[in-house]
Design a binder for these strands. Structure first.
Lengths: 222, 222
DNA sequence: CGTTTTATATTGAACGTGCAATCAACAAAA
DNA sequence: TTTTGTTGATTGCACGTTCAATATAAAACG
């Protein structure tokens, strides 16, 4: 398992350096996890470059350095790849958040809440590829039940986490509004970052979000 | 001018009632503004129904009760129609905001700011068609220069309006952060409303946004 | 007033393009 | 020999655009 993962990383790192000939000449076994990861990364790269509408299977597979047929082979089709890509992004977000919360020494509500905020602005999330892919999935999830389900689960998790921490500080109804507001603030900063040609100003976004957090809890806890 | 506009409304209102035969039998002059509006409305309806990716010219034109060729005739092509649709939405938003600010009796910063908030949650903006069309354009504006330009202008206008009002209450740097935060809050509530299957809870969104506003200005002005 | 001419409005079949998916063929590893 | 990995030409389909054809409204004319 460890070895395979390392081999995968090595493959990925040298992906651009390898020529097509080398690639053709070395069909090894155990490629599936490597290829899947390559294709997911290539999908984000392609969406960042030309948008979801023009991210064709040929374009994506070229970015991954493989042929187009591979996508159907490993993901059953383009839709499967897009779904896997969204899963990856959601998974990375979940990891970024829970990792920060796990390593907290301070267990106060404020500490948890700021860890949630920081996790949402983690570098794995705010780079141009991830941000624009997020945005594309937001838009298309509205009309694709499977993506909608993924988006909904993620959304509820963020809200529930926020609500639970605010609940430690204030009555239920107030906590609900605070969680609503905080979730909207995070998504809004995110959205504006994805739309901005310069990308998200992480420091600025964190400052605004944390200041909002402090205003929300000022009346209840220092 | 007045007559033509009224004829246009009459056309629009009876749009669904008229049969194709009637339609074919009555090619009148002065149809351009009517058709343009019909097609823009049909575009939003189609995007609401199946998303931007599946909003084909045939689907849109069927919604408008005309043939597909008309789109190229009046808008030069599908892209022209999409651009005109985004322009319409931005125009409606601008109108909703400036109308509320124009009729203010109270000229305090808080009154202006809450008018801006209310305008952004105006009924012309928060219905499912408009909200989902907004979302679709957000995503595609990233890769289409003309849509990006429109989106950017609108964005700066909101930010500048917010900043100007906050500036009346506090120093420049603080006002900037407040405007940043308020803009993110509005967009975030909007985004979450567009993603939610139940649509935007306008009353709840206004409450959260206004409460945030009051927290921001509490230290400076009652 | 009736008739011809011109301008405007609209259709829908035809066309070319570009896409995702398929699959026969091949290559290396086990 | 079987399993796993990969290619790329082929296929079929759906899309946006074009344009010849048609039909009415308005204008010009006698």
């Amino acid at each position: 398992m460890k070895h395979r993962a390392q081999a995968g990383n090595a493959e990925l790192e040298s992906q651009k350096a390898r020529s097509k000939l080398e690639d053709n000449a070395v069909p090894k076994v155990g490629m599936e996890p490597i290829r899947r990861q390559q294709l997911i990364n290539a999908t984000m790269t392609a969406i960042n470059e030309v948008g979801l509408a023009d991210a064709t299977v040929i374009r994506i597979s070229r970015h991954a350095g493989v042929s187009a047929g591979i996508i159907s082979h490993y993901f059953g089709g383009k839709d499967g790849l897009l779904e896997a890509t969204m899963r990856q992004i959601l998974h990375d977000l979940g990891t970024a958040v829970s990792e920060r919360r796990r390593t907290l020494t301070d267990t106060s509500p404020r500490a948890h809440l700021s860890a949630i905020i920081d996790g949402n602005f983690d570098s794995s999330q705010v780079n141009a590829s991830a941000a624009r892919t997020w945005l594309a999935f937001w838009a298309s999830s509205v009309h694709k039940p499977e993506l909608q389900r993924l988006q909904y689960v993620n959304d509820r998790r963020l809200y529930a986490n926020l609500c639970h921490q605010f609940r430690r500080l204030m009555p239920r109804d107030e906590a609900r509004d605070c969680a609503r507001g905080m979730a909207a603030m995070i998504d809004g900063l995110w959205l504006r970052g994805a739309l901005s040609p310069e990308g998200l100003d992480v420091a600025g976004a964190r400052r605004v979000a944390l200041e909002y957090l402090d205003r929300l809890i000022r009346d209840y806890n220092g």
